[in-house]
Computed example of a mutant assay.
Amino acid sequence: MSDKPIVKEYSNGEVTVIWKPESCIHSTICWKKATGLPDVFQPSTKPWIKLEGGTTEEIMKQVDKCPSGALSYRLKDEQNNVVSANIVETLPNGPLLVYGNITVKHAGSEESKVNKVTAFCRCGASSNKPYCDGTHVKINFSD
């Protein structure tokens, strides 16, 4: 048995959406009708990502909203989805979002290279530190 995290990829030929379920905080931003693309992201079906439900531009814009970084994308012939600017955003009553290419140095010598958006825990209760796992909602964390 492998301890390697699950990573799934879905492609429409122009864009490949990468999903890392272990990073998902179930914000529902991707699929709820008010904020998401319900024709693309359908959590009650398998496979749950159906790229034919939206344009490449719509899909990229929606994936950019993922607060945990569980969803990312790369364009055809692109090795990495490069973000040129680093931006830090504090979500009210939620995680610290870091947009851009960063290296996270963990205890010891382990490093993780991440891109797009990474959600860091601010409440101190995450079981996946330093990353947010959505526990702030359960404990009613507030600024």
Rank of each mutant, 00 (worst) to 15 (best):
K33F: 06
G94H: 00
V114W: 09
V114F: 13
G54I: 03
H106S: 07
I49M: 01
G94E: 03
P47I: 03
N140K: 10
P92R: 12
Y99C: 10
T56W: 01
K105W: 05
M1A: 10
V83R: 09
F141P: 04
I102G: 01
I59C: 02
E22I: 07
G94Q: 01
E14T: 11
E58Y: 02
E57D: 11
H136F: 08
K65R: 13
T45L: 06
S84G: 05
V137G: 15
Y73T: 09
T45Y: 12
A34W: 03
S11F: 07
I139K: 10
M60A: 07
H106P: 11
K113D: 15
V7L: 12
N86L: 07
S2Y: 15
P95L: 02
S72K: 10
F141L: 07
K138W: 13
P21Y: 11
K33D: 11
T56H: 04
T103M: 08
D64W: 02
K129N: 09
S44Q: 14
V88L: 07
V98G: 02
V15K: 09
E58G: 04
V137Q: 08
I139V: 12
A70H: 04
I6F: 14
A119W: 03
A119I: 07
P95F: 00
T55H: 02
L51K: 01
S72I: 08
K46G: 13
I59W: 00
V7I: 14
E52W: 01
P43Q: 05
S142E: 10
G54V: 01
I139M: 15
P67F: 03
D133M: 10
V82I: 07
F141I: 06
P38F: 00
G69F: 00
T135E: 14
E58A: 05
T45E: 11
I25K: 05
V83M: 06
V98H: 05
K76T: 14
G36H: 01
E52G: 04
E111K: 08
K116I: 08
L75M: 12
E22V: 14
T35P: 02
I6S: 11
I25N: 05
K32I: 08
E58N: 01
D133C: 12
T28Y: 14
K61F: 03
N93M: 06
P92L: 04
N12E: 10
S127I: 07
K20D: 09
G13R: 09
I29D: 11
S72Q: 06
C24M: 14
G100F: 00
A119S: 10
L97D: 09
T118A: 10
V40I: 02
F141G: 04
P95I: 02
G54Q: 04
E110W: 15
S23D: 08
K8T: 12
T103L: 05
E57G: 01
P92F: 09
A107L: 10
I49S: 02
M60Q: 05
I102F: 00
S68R: 03
G124Q: 12
V17S: 11
P95M: 04
V63F: 02
T90V: 13
W48H: 14
G108M: 03
P95K: 01
N86G: 05
G100S: 03
Q42W: 03
D133G: 14
